[in-house]
Design a protein around this nucleic acid. Structure first.
Lengths: 200, 200
DNA sequence: TGAGAGTTTGGACTATCAGTACAACACAGG
DNA sequence: CCTGTGTTGTACTGATAGTCCAAACTCTCA
């Protein structure tokens, strides 16, 4: 895949919705060309095929998530508060890019089969969150995890499915309401808390 | 889709792995025919196309999950314990059918686009868990949820991603270890608990 | 100004594969 | 033996992903 001019990249976002709606294999290359305004021949000049176009869009989304998550992770405050920030960050990106987000989750399988995406996902989310969990154990705001990696994975799953549900349904709730719900589940769990001991 | 003879259904499972590995659209009908031992003409006698074959496999998996989840939901004990049972049930089915499970999550987007699957998923998981959450609020073993539906969705996401990760990685951990980790996150959350107040 | 490199595009072409058509065959029950 | 229901091989069609190429266009450097 050749280096992509910005202007062209921008046009491609127009195709994300199409892919999200129909799935990649129900979307003809010619449809993508038409929806984005980029001629087919040009698409093939830059990409080796459909999959690479999807991969580009998804990597872009993951990069956006990575950026916002990184900011949240290295903010001020206790780890538990920053974790809530991470949740808000990921949900924020997802709700701002519902089409790419639906395409990502919709073609999650393909995504897991694209190695560079797995790496991007890991860098965007798992590693920072894992680090955050360790810091939480230090500052006492989070319990010590036996297996921070798999907890990070679960956290990602929780946030992702919550965000996806909104993206599919068409985001009828405020982002903050959703983020609070997710953060509460993750921090406090479902069991009742004895009064006066909670995170964020 | 015609009523499917059991013998034929059994053969089809052999194709699930193929689909899980490659994704549906990289899998040729002829490959499915070869892998399952069911001739292409017979496949088209029963199914209208590829998608319907996938839908059959997924519906089958969801039915299995629905069955085990239903048992767990209506077991003895407090709701918190039964919720842990639900987690074990879903993970159990997923780990016993890693191929279908990967195919399901891999083609999740397609799945969300197949209305009967969305309905099956809802019946298999969301509704029973939502009911369980309400019961937990009654018996005091779970906190009262503001929005049980969306909590049920998040729970599903957490369990699913955890299970998927194992299915992809090749299940190096014991099912019980995974299930305990998931149940602990869901019930207790990540914030430290004051001693002596916890679920399951 | 103009040569040359890289980019952009239209359009024709090929190869692959999903899905169809159909005829032949198997095998049941009456 | 006849008829209906499943089963299968084979040949076919149509759609479309991806290739190829030549013409045009743009930018840079001399």
């Amino acid at each position: 895949m050749r280096e992509l001019p910005v202007q062209l990249a921008t046009k491609l976002y127009g195709a994300a919705e199409l892919i999200a709606d129909q799935g990649l294999d129900n979307t003809k290359i010619d449809d993508i060309a038409e929806a984005s305004g980029v001629p087919k021949a040009t698409l093939y000049y830059y990409f080796t095929g459909k999959e690479e176009i999807l991969a580009f869009l998804l990597k872009d989304l993951l990069t956006a998530i990575a950026g916002d998550v990184a900011v949240a992770v290295s903010a001020e405050g206790r780890a538990s508060e920053r974790l809530a920030g991470v949740v808000r960050a990921q949900l924020g990106v997802m709700l701002r890019n519902p089409a790419s987000c639906r395409a990502l989750v919709g073609d999650l399988g393909r995504a897991t089969r694209l190695p560079e995406l797995a790496a991007a996902l890991s860098a965007a989310f798992y590693e920072p969150v894992e680090k955050l969990l360790r810091e939480g154990a230090e500052d006492g705001s989070l319990r010590r995890a036996e297996d921070p990696m798999s907890e990070a994975v679960m956290i990602f799953g929780t946030v992702t499915i919550a965000g996806l549900m909104e993206a599919i349904m068409g985001a009828h709730r405020e982002m903050d309401a959703i983020a609070n719900g997710v953060a509460r589940l993750l921090l406090d769990g479902l069991a009742p808390r004895s009064p006066g001991a909670t995170g964020a």
